[in-house]
Amino acid sequence: MQKTIDIPRELMTEKELLQPGLLSCQGCGASLAMKLAMKGLGERTVVVIPACCWSIIIGVYPYSTLQVPVIHVPFETAAVSASGIRAAFDARGEKDVVVMAWAGDGGTFDIGIQSLSGAAERNDDILYVCYDNEAYMNTGIQRSSATPVGAWTTTTPEGSIKEEPKKDIEEIMLAHHIPYMATASVAYPDDMYMKFKKVRYITGTKFIHLLSPCPPGWRIDPSKSVQITRMATQAKVFPIYEVRRWGFSKERGCLEENWKYTINVYPDRELSTKEYMQTQGRFQQITEEMVHDVQKRVDRKWDELVRKADGSGTRSQDPGGDSSL
């Protein structure tokens, strides 16, 4: 039996900023994710979109499905374009406007990582969201550095299986000392909504990593995309957690550096990596040995995460739970 979740009432009543007419595939995680993100962020938001599925999904000129200002930018420039817009809005005296870069995994892990690293190092006051569908899906499923071990893509065909582990983008971003990093997925809409609501109140570079199911690319039934994404978290392949840099010091009466990891969703059942992978056609060519290695990696990362979270004294099951930001 699946546990039921309490959906925050606001999630149902917030203004709908995403209108019908999306050009996405059935079961597209990125589309649902934008709907949830915008509910959390609200109207005073500018969206920056580099080349990615969302370049198409949003609609063809002269139509847009998103009811906030949107700018499309070159593939590798999502973060720094947001930085430029941030500077301009600051100059205009509109500091409360959230500038959100919304990029795919190719635009984040690969071609856009330089400008993302630059913006994060400068701690520019932007929100960067990577909706990660684990390959170049918009161009027809090619390998990216976010593609997991053993996944089929058109550039990792039979006989050329991907052996390299996926980049750990979360640790890469945390290594930039940004004030807030979180993961989320459409399988936990309440958690995702809360996180997008919260980032509006954090100054500096915020990074949110979304696991975003892609039925054509993952070789799954569109009706199963949310369920399979949920399994990714249950199998600990994609833990849902958040990390913040600053905490309030009662002693000093101000914010001070105090890294805090919070696991927002603890798996509610035992599930192996293998069981998760078996739900998807893309993992058909993976070997037993590879599955074994991936499982070990997943376990190690999870143990580390639990250690870090417990070390900070937090064992929260509340979605988007850490409100001490």
């Binding site: 949003i58 063809v60 000129y61 200002p69 949107v70 700018i71």
Partner: peptide
């Protein structure tokens, strides 16, 4: 709100 530079 307007959209700039989209699919054309």
């Amino acid at each position: 709100p307007r959209m700039f530079g989209g699919l054309i």
